[in-house]
Design a binder for these strands. Structure first.
Length: 121
DNA sequence: GCACTGACGCGGG
DNA sequence: TCCCGCGCCAGTG
């Protein structure tokens, strides 16, 4: 069971133009309640998710990781570049999860789990 | 081993 | 819907 390797596979499956939450990533990795470790891994540059890290937001759609990017609005710009609408709220930059959330299917989850088994991670 | 930290989540009101 | 408080757990020193 290698959490970070699983994270890499999961993160790279987030479709362009969609976002996923930390808890959702943890769940797909087969590690419920590990949302904070997902954030830790992204911040440390583990999990090889550099290219798609901007697609990870919290459960409410808030870009909580803005401070971890080189410039404060980099994550927002990367998302807008993928046609994701980001709006300002009193809590910070936010994405509408109903519209842009990655609503993965049971099939995708099972497919990932099978892949983990094959790769032995 | 212990205490503290943090890109978080959720249930209740 | 929003706000609040508590729960969570690998890393770190």
């Amino acid at each position: 069971m290698d959490f970070y390797k699983r994270m890499e596979l999961v993160c790279q499956r987030i479709p362009r133009g969609k976002v996923a939450s930390y808890g959702q990533i943890a769940l797909l990795c087969g590690m419920p309640r590990h949302a904070r470790q997902v954030g830790y891994a992204l911040g440390k540059g583990l999990a090889g998710a550099e290219g798609v890290a901007h697609r990870i937001v919290n459960a409410r759609g808030i870009l909580s990781g803005a401070a971890a990017f080189e410039s404060p609005d980099l994550q927002k710009r990367l998302l807008e570049q993928e046609n994701v609408v980001v709006e300002w709220t009193k809590d910070g930059w936010r994405v509408d999860m109903r519209q842009f959330g990655w609503h993965n299917t049971m099939e995708e989850a099972e497919e990932l789990y099978a892949l983990f088994q094959i790769l032995g991670i």
